[in-house]
Amino acid sequence: MKLAILKRNKRIEIEKILEKNYGILIPFKYQLVKLGKEKLRIFTGNLGARDILILSKILTIDTIGLYFAFFKDDELRISFDSAILFGRNAINSVSLNDREAKEWLRGQDLEKNTQIRGYVVIKYNDNILGCGKATGRKILNFVPKERRII
C-alpha cells in the first residue's frame, strides 16, 4: 500500500479548509496520511513520519489511523466518523427530525430546503449522523453502507 504523509504546509492548507467550511479545529497533535488519490487518514500515534515510512517498507500495511476526509479539487468532505468525533460544534449543520433521520440512515438523499450550499454536519437529537452535501433543496447522503440501518 502506498502511503504519503502530508507535509506541514499541505496539512495547514487542509486545516484552513476545515476551519472555514466546518468551523472545526482539531485540538491535539496528529498527522495526515494520504492513501490513494483522494482519501486522507488521521493518525494520532506517537510514531514519527520517518518511523512510519520505515515500517511501510518492511511490513504489509493495510491502513493507518482513521478515515478522515475525502479531498478533491479543494473540496473537503469529512468522513462519517470524523463528523462524529469533531463535528459537534460545526458551523454548517442541519438537524433532522425522526422521519428524516430514518431515511438518512437508510442511505437516502433527503428532500430538504436549507439555506446552506456545501458540506454540512448532520445532527439528530444529540447524535451526529455524518456529513452530507446540501444543494439548497436536497442533502446528498454519504452514510457508509456498513453503518446504514435498513
Binding site: 493518525f43 494520532t44 511490513l59 504489509t60 500495511i61 493507518i64 489511523g65 466518523d81 456498513e146
Partner: peptide
C-alpha cells in the same frame, strides 16, 4: 478495520501478515 473506524480509533497501524514473519521483520 471496520471496527476501528466505527470506534474512532486513530492511533493504530493495521498490518496483514503472518504473525511470526511480522515479528521476525
Amino acid at each position: 478495520v471496520s471496527n476501528l473506524e466505527r470506534c474512532g480509533v486513530m492511533n493504530t497501524l493495521v498490518t496483514r501478515m503472518n504473525g511470526i514473519v511480522l515479528c521476525k521483520k
